[in-house]
Design a protein around this nucleic acid. Sequence first.
DNA 1: CTGAAAGCGCTTACAG
DNA 2: CTGAAAGCGCTTACAG
Lengths: 334, 334
Amino acid sequence: MAKITIETVAKRAGVTAATVSYALSGKKKISDEVKQRIYAAVEELNYRPSVTARNLASSKTWTVGLYASPTKNIREDYFFNNILAGILDTLHEKNYQIQLYADYQDEEKTSNQNIHMTQPIDGALIMNPRIHDKYIKDIMQRGIPLVVIGTPEERENCFYVDADITAGYYAAVNYLIKKGHTKILLINGSAEYTQTEKRKAGYILAYEDNGLSFDEQWILNVQMLEEDGYREFKKIAEQITDFTAVVTFNDTIAVGVLRVLREKGISVPHKVAVLSAGNTMITRIHSPSITSLDMGSYDIGMKAAELLLEVIEKKRIQPSHTIIRTHLVEREST
Amino acid sequence: MAKITIETVAKRAGVTAATVSYALSGKKKISDEVKQRIYAAVEELNYRPSVTARNLASSKTWTVGLYASPTKNIREDYFFNNILAGILDTLHEKNYQIQLYADYQDEEKTSNQNIHMTQPIDGALIMNPRIHDKYIKDIMQRGIPLVVIGTPEERENCFYVDADITAGYYAAVNYLIKKGHTKILLINGSAEYTQTEKRKAGYILAYEDNGLSFDEQWILNVQMLEEDGYREFKKIAEQITDFTAVVTFNDTIAVGVLRVLREKGISVPHKVAVLSAGNTMITRIHSPSITSLDMGSYDIGMKAAELLLEVIEKKRIQPSHTIIRTHLVEREST
DNA sequence: CTGAAAGCGCTTACAG
DNA sequence: CTGAAAGCGCTTACAG
């Protein structure tokens, strides 16, 4: 059967394509009688407008691009799920779709056509920004509305939504210090992410405010999988032995850390306290359950999507940001 | 600054738009000299082809639509993450993008424009099919290449990729029976999903093959969140008391079940054994760790994406399916 | 309230 | 190897 286009419908209804378009979009008043004929034709022909053609003609795609983490991280990270859910719910409400890009930056597939193309998106959401983030640079250069999830390097020029990570880590470390811990390891994320340095800043501040000193060696940068947390913490735990607490970049890494402690027969929290960030489901399930910094992940996704829609609709021009309050959820591990 | 189109580039390079298109796509040989001029112009102007225009002209979008679960399920389900990762990795390899649709079917937003439109996708992947699945029906009706993740109702007309769930549950229940359990509860998923009945079939088969009988009351249909597993299992555990094992639809529900057992002070696995499906990270982390049926989630995603690409490229016409072998991973809970 | 026509920015036979 | 031209299927001023 031949392709059913707006033209087919127009002929059937005895009107012109323009009229069909107006009737369907409601952008112009069309007489009831004509409207009925058009609807009937649409029904009979089972007509579906081509989104592609519509996109081209209206230069509007109703699609938002989400630049996520590498897939191997996604596999172990509930934090992603929560943010994604917040984004999806918000966009769905406003009839926007989502195009998902996983991060394959490391592959250096420089010939990748896609990156070089103007993606059919009205706006972009970039998760977990890096220090010199190519995606941010590229998107901004192309003038596409952008909201960063996390804190971008150049805060002045960007819209972004983030948790108050530094304050959160400050509170977390402070909490441990008040409990009597003075030697706290920080198993931080990879140094390329801005989130990593924000965590470190909170850690340092807490030490300073309490008049204590720390050693740079107590701070480690690791990748974000459980296995990475396990491996790297195992190494450091053999060099540094008299620490009494560990703070991690996220829940996944904490699980790796706790596995090392269990294997070594080090009791948690009696010998060593462990505190993570994310407050994802695994912190409740793990035994011992894990004290974790809640970063309002679903809200972050929601706020970021809301903000992006405002930027797309030009309700906001001046770069601004939203900060989500964090709070510590105490559990057995501390 | 004015919009940079293929026309702009053509003028700058002193050629026609067609030549630029051919040079960039490589679909025709263009002399080196001209090609150099074109590349230079592209570079100077920082030209990015419009994907939208390309899509319309070539009726090819390099995009695959993924119809996922409701967002509330996504939030607690690592199984989704793994399948998603498998899909993303495969599609990325072949330069396809992914458009993500969460399932808001329940909202009955019948006036939803999006559903009624021809999405700009070359193919679709539908996760966790229902008994009378509207999405499947709609996509098929529109003639869009489709691969179902899970087993669709009409197996003959569909491409699909699934784990051998029935065989897996057969093996799982059989394993419990061999261990001496005769009264095993099945906390199954919602009846609207085909996966639910496949699980039940395996359960029944195992009972039959062992010459044992079971009671339909031992089988429960619940939603897929931990909270649902918790609430519904708590209810049934007050009515039926002499069971010695519980099998669940997935890991998330198992966590809810285990929470009830802990609260009731029922020792696992000594008094009651628990077995789930998914083998996601939480089964290792939970205490006691959970015996779970591994369904090769990453592979399912990978195979489904591969199959879809073959269908899109017309390398496959006749509906076919791929079945991923399951295997039981024994842990402390049984 | 309705129509004729240009335009969105590409691709792709068809000629040469 | 290169160009002129039609076409993809819509939307949107502009007239009437």
